[in-house]
Design a protein around this nucleic acid. Structure first.
Lengths: 108, 108
DNA sequence: CAAATAGGTAAGTAATCACTTACCGTAAGT
DNA sequence: ACTTACGGTAAGTGATTACTTACCTATTTG
């Protein structure tokens, strides 16, 4: 159940913002922290959580570390979500097949 | 940004469990609470949060209320997730195009 | 070598939150 | 009308957690 930690990660607005900034491509910690309303150590902690959830990965680049989105955790999340999507569509189909509200009259 | 509240909802394990139980079809509050390690009022509170996030809906049925999954919030969440999915695939494609690690030697 | 840059970690704190019990209104059965 | 089943809400509480500052290790640059 790795999607659990992924969901918990993405539930925080700041962490989600960090993750969304990586959508436009790999970035260093400093780049990610620049312009955010929180300190740089906070961003480091968020990145650690995102990495443990399998949502991002990093590679050293000199004195810096470049973070990028990891398709692994993302895919697991998507598969989990699709289970509900399929179930919801199925239910909606049955909803349409309902014979126009027959309803049991109780006091005629 | 309704996906924000949806993500926050699904980040809690108990609330996720309630949501997952609805995957097999609409259920009453009592049915949902039965067997869970938390009290029934707790389940009511979770359902309220899920409803506000657009993930479930309910309809009265006598003295009971029947809850079911709402495709609305689910779809919004899926679309948001797919943005990253596309970006991640794009990045992975570029990764494959990298010319086999040329690397700048510093002290030959 | 020294200074500066980049970033991870530790410890403490204030706010959020998931849970409990208690209570209330409503619907159905006797 | 009384009783039982169903479920939403209020208030209080303990645990999580997202943030801060302080500190430390590497790497680059003068």
């Amino acid at each position: 159940m790795a999607y659990g930690s992924a969901l918990q990660c993405l539930s925080d607005p700041t962490r989600r913002e960090v993750f969304e900034r990586l959508r436009s491509g790999p970035k260093s910690v400093g780049e990610l922290a620049r312009g955010l309303p929180v300190s740089r150590p906070a961003v480091s902690q968020h990145l650690k959580a995102l990495k443990e959830a399998g949502l991002v990965n990093d590679e050293p680049d000199g004195a810096r570390r470049i973070y990028h989105i990891d398709p692994h955790g993302l895919g697991e999340l998507r598969r989990w979500l699709d289970q509900f999507w399929d179930a919801a569509l199925e239910a909606f189909k049955h909803e349409l097949e309902k014979p126009a509200d027959p309803k049991v009259r109780k006091t005629p």
